[in-house]
Amino acid sequence: MDLSSEALIPDVADTAPLTRREIADLLPEVPDWSFEGGRLAARFACKGFDEAVTFLNEVAGFAAQENHPPDLGIHAGRFVDIAWYTYAIGGLSKNDFIMAARLSGWLRCRQGAFL
C-alpha cells in the first residue's frame, strides 16, 4: 500500500516512537525527505521571500487539514524548511512519514506553483 494513502493514527500519545530500524525501513518511501536531528526533514527552494511565505502558508494549511502540523521555517529568505516530529511521543511516528508522503504528492500536483 502506498504510504500516502494510509490512514493517520488519531492519537499516538500512548505509542512508542519509531526505532532507528523502523525509520530506516520507511525512509525509502519518502525519497524527498531525510532523517536529520531526530526529525523527518526537507528543504524547498522558492524564487524569493514572498513566494516562500506563500508556500509556507500553503503547507501550513495542508497540514492543518490533517491536524498534524510540521515545524516550518524560512531560511535565507527563500528556502522553506519543513520537519515532521511527533512531540506527544518525543520522536517520529508513522504519521510523520504518512504526512511527508502526502505532502510530497500534493507538491507534485502543484509543481511550479511556488518552486
Rank of each mutant, 00 (worst) to 15 (best):
M1W: 07
L3V: 02
S4H: 14
S5D: 11
S5G: 04
E6W: 04
A7Y: 00
A7S: 13
I9P: 00
I9Y: 03
P10C: 02
P10R: 04
P10F: 03
D11I: 07
D11P: 08
V12D: 01
A13V: 10
D14Q: 09
P17G: 01
P17L: 02
P17N: 10
T19A: 08
T19M: 04
R20L: 11
R21A: 14
R21M: 07
R21Q: 14
E22C: 03
I23L: 09
A24T: 09
D25A: 12
L26A: 07
L26D: 09
L27W: 13
L27Y: 10
P28Y: 13
P28A: 01
P28S: 01
P28I: 01
E29W: 06
E29F: 05
V30D: 13
V30L: 09
V30R: 14
P31N: 02
P31R: 10
P31T: 00
D32S: 11
D32L: 07
W33T: 04
W33G: 02
S34N: 10
F35M: 11
F35G: 01
E36K: 00
G38I: 05
R39I: 08
R39P: 06
R39D: 09
A41E: 14
A45Q: 14
A45M: 08
C46A: 13
K47E: 15
G48C: 07
G48Y: 06
D50F: 08
E51D: 13
A52F: 03
T54E: 15
T54W: 06
T54Q: 15
F55L: 09
F55E: 08
L56D: 12
N57A: 09
N57G: 07
N57P: 01
E58A: 15
V59L: 11
A60N: 10
A60S: 15
G61N: 15
G61R: 10
A63G: 05
A64R: 14
A64G: 12
A64K: 13
Q65M: 04
E66R: 15
N67A: 13
N67V: 05
N67Q: 12
H68D: 00
P69G: 03
P69C: 06
P69H: 15
G73H: 07
I74G: 10
I74K: 09
I74S: 12
H75F: 07
G77Q: 05
V80N: 13
D81E: 15
D81V: 08
D81Y: 00
I82E: 06
W84M: 01
W84N: 01
Y85P: 04
Y87T: 08
Y87N: 08
A88M: 06
I89K: 05
G90C: 05
G90F: 05
L92W: 03
S93E: 08
N95K: 00
D96H: 05
D96C: 02
F97H: 07
F97G: 00
F97Y: 12
I98P: 04
I98E: 02
M99W: 02
A100N: 03
A100E: 02
A101P: 06
A101Q: 09
R102E: 00
R102I: 00
L103S: 10
S104P: 05
W106C: 03
W106P: 05
L107T: 07
R108Q: 12
C109K: 15
C109G: 14
R110T: 04
R110V: 02
Q111W: 12
Q111C: 02
Q111A: 13
G112A: 09
G112L: 08
A113I: 06
A113Q: 14
F114P: 01
L115W: 08
L115H: 11
